[in-house]
Amino acid sequence: MQLVTPGIGLLFWQTITFLVVLFLLSKFAWKPIMKALREREDNIDAALTMAEKAKLEMQALKADNERLLTEARAERDRILKDATDAATTLVEGARTKANEEGQRMIEQARVSIQNEKKAALTEVKNLAATLSIDIAEKLLRRELQDEQAQRALVQSYLQDTHLS
């Protein structure tokens, strides 16, 4: 039974050894251990603070990115609208110019047709006048072949002409 119950001397020496180890630990090891624990605690606090700052910076960057993305979308929409408006204006301008050019060409064609028509009518009139003169000349030659007919014609012209 002696193994189970400790003796008084053993308890005394264990207590003395414990106190000596406790004294030595408190004198030499306790301060460095506590210092290391405080440094570790400070490092952990600093890391948590830095993590919190990084989190806040990430949120700020995310907000900035969202704002820039929104601005870029608005700019893209504005550019697309301007390009569409410019294309519409260009198409309308080209259509108007084409219509004006078509109207101008039609008007030129009308004027050209009128001029050609007048020229053709003038030519027909000239041809008719020439033919009339030729026919009249031939008729007069045939009728005025004798001298008596020529004198009658001259007398008739003189009577039609009144000399004042």
Rank of each mutant, 00 (worst) to 15 (best):
L80V: 00
D77T: 05
M50D: 14
A51E: 15
N65F: 08
V21P: 01
N43K: 14
T70F: 03
W13R: 00
R78Q: 10
G7E: 09
E101D: 14
E92M: 07
I33C: 01
D77R: 07
E39L: 14
A63C: 00
V21M: 06
K55F: 15
A60L: 00
K62R: 01
L48T: 02
Q103L: 13
I79F: 09
N99M: 10
L61A: 01
A46F: 11
F18H: 06
M58H: 06
D45A: 10
M50F: 06
D42S: 06
G102W: 12
L37P: 08
E75L: 08
R110M: 12
A94I: 14
A94M: 14
L80Q: 01
R38N: 15
I44M: 07
F23E: 10
F12A: 01
Q14V: 04
E57P: 04
A86R: 15
K97C: 06
L10P: 00
E39G: 12
D77H: 11
S26Q: 06
L37M: 14
A86T: 15
F18L: 06
E75F: 03
E52V: 07
A36P: 01
K55Q: 09
R67W: 10
F23P: 00
A63P: 02
E41R: 05
K55E: 15
A87T: 13
D45S: 03
I44G: 02
V91Y: 03
T5K: 09
E101P: 00
K81D: 01
R76H: 09
L68Q: 13
E92H: 03
R95H: 07
A51F: 11
A54Q: 11
E100I: 12
